[in-house]
């Protein structure tokens, strides 16, 4: 922090940093999509009580929720290449971006699996019985009755998870990914104006979070449109 604080630099840094917003959003998008896939796959053993697999899922979810994302990043960054080296595949030159995507997908997958499980279990069993009574098959009941209602319940939690995972992507630079924060670090190295860089980064993150929140609120209204408005008496 050798140089004097200069607020005009924020305006100069902002456009340079925004160029790397794409990398951050790319990590977010990939990890959300794979997180949903992993989440569904991990929720099934627990919903249908498949032995062994369901215990494995419990350990997986507990580990992901019990360790910091930073530690998970390091474990994947050093662990996956070590694992592949056993099969004589050298991954040490792989772009760290992929390790970040793997980590956040696994991390989101654990959280999503809990959200999906909770949402499906929250549907009243009477709904299933009603579906059977009008002659629907198992899969029709699941896809036409249970899933649409479960999405409405799961969506707000998923939105929260996606937003917190966006904020977590700010740690990706620790293993050398050139995302927004990574670019910020290089700017600090070249200009020595750390505070201005972090102010610019905070502004970008804040705007993205606000936009995402707005979008999710609109989408949530659409998902829950069949539900009557809850009018509280209080």
């Amino acid at each position: 922090m050798g140089k004097a604080f200069d607020i005009t630099l924020v305006g100069e840094f902002l456009p340079q940093l925004v160029q790397y917003l794409g990398v951050t959003l790319q990590i977010l998008a990939v990890s959300t999509v794979f997180g949903i896939v992993i989440g569904i796959a991990a929720a099934i053993p627990r919903l249908f009580r498949i032995p062994i697999l369901s215990q494995l899922v419990v350990v997986y979810v507990s580990f992901i929720r019990g360790t910091p994302i930073l530690i998970q990043l390091f474990l994947i960054f050093y662990g996956v290449p070590a694992l592949f080296l056993l099969f004589d595949i050298d991954l040490t030159r792989m772009d760290p971006l992929y390790f970040v995507m793997i980590t956040y997908s696994l991390s989101n997958g654990a959280v999503f699996s809990e959200i999906f499980r909770g949402a499906i279990q929250a549907i009243d069993y009477g709904q299933t019985e009603a579906a059977y009574s009008v002659g629907m098959s198992d899969s029709q009941t699941f896809f036409r009755i249970i899933i649409p209602q479960a999405i409405g319940i799961a969506f707000p939690n998923m939105a929260n998870c996606i937003i917190s995972s966006l904020k977590d992507t700010s740690l990706a630079f620790t293993i050398g990914v050139m995302d927004m924060v990574g670019r910020g670090e290089t700017l600090i190295a070249s200009t020595a104006h750390a505070l201005e860089v972090y102010i610019s980064l905070s502004i970008i993150y804040y705007i993205v979070v606000l936009v995402l929140e707005k979008l999710f609120r609109l989408f949530e209204k659409r998902v829950n449109r069949y539900k009557p408005d809850v009018v509280s008496s209080a």
Binding site: M1, K167, S170, A194, L195, Y198, Y205, Y206
Partner: peptide, 22 residues
């Protein structure tokens, strides 16, 4: 509440770490 929940905590740490001494 909105700003601090809308930005990563690492940003708060860095902002205070570099900003407070100034």
């Amino acid at each position: 509440v909105s700003f601090l929940r809308g930005t990563p905590i690492i940003m708060h740490v860095m902002l205070i770490y570099f900003g407070f001494p100034l």
